[in-house]
Design a protein around this nucleic acid. Structure first.
Lengths: 75, 75
DNA sequence: AGGTCTATGTATAAAGA
DNA sequence: TTCTTTATACATAGACC
């Protein structure tokens, strides 16, 4: 999805890896939200950067999702 | 991303909603896996269909992700 | 670390099997 | 429901701020 086809393996260059992380993380959370709205489904996404920062999305009220959210709140 | 632009709101037609759920759910899990590999990040995705079926992905070993996985195992 | 640009790869809507 | 096919919308790689 860009100027060049990308092989799915760990990106060696630290800076590129960080840039890609930022872009794709945003894309993943967006798509999770879209899925939950379009299809009336419960969705949770949790992303942990290797520097320990946490990014997440929880769609709603289903018990499992709530439980995950509660677990997440301990961190 | 298809023949027609789609508004992000609940899909009314039950069959279309199911078809879209199947496609996008698969796409979301794929992208979660790609993100975890490319960027060496921990990722968890949990999707619950409104008919109660569960689909999920957990990248790896980080404690939070493990915890989420443990919670998930109770369901 | 985040935003813009834009060429190009990818995901997916709709239809049909 | 699940797989194909095809056209099109969307995400994003790389370059530059």
């Amino acid at each position: 999805m860009g100027r060049k086809k990308v092989e799915i393996k760990r990106i060696g260059d630290k800076n590129s890896r960080q840039v890609t992380f930022s872009k794709r993380r945003k894309g993943l959370l967006k798509k999770a939200k879209e899925l939950s709205i379009l299809c009336d489904a419960d969705v949770a996404v949790v992303v942990f950067s290797n520097r320990g920062r946490l990014y997440d999305f929880y769609s709603t009220n289903r018990f499992l999702i709530k439980s995950l959210h509660i677990v997440r709140s301990f961190f």
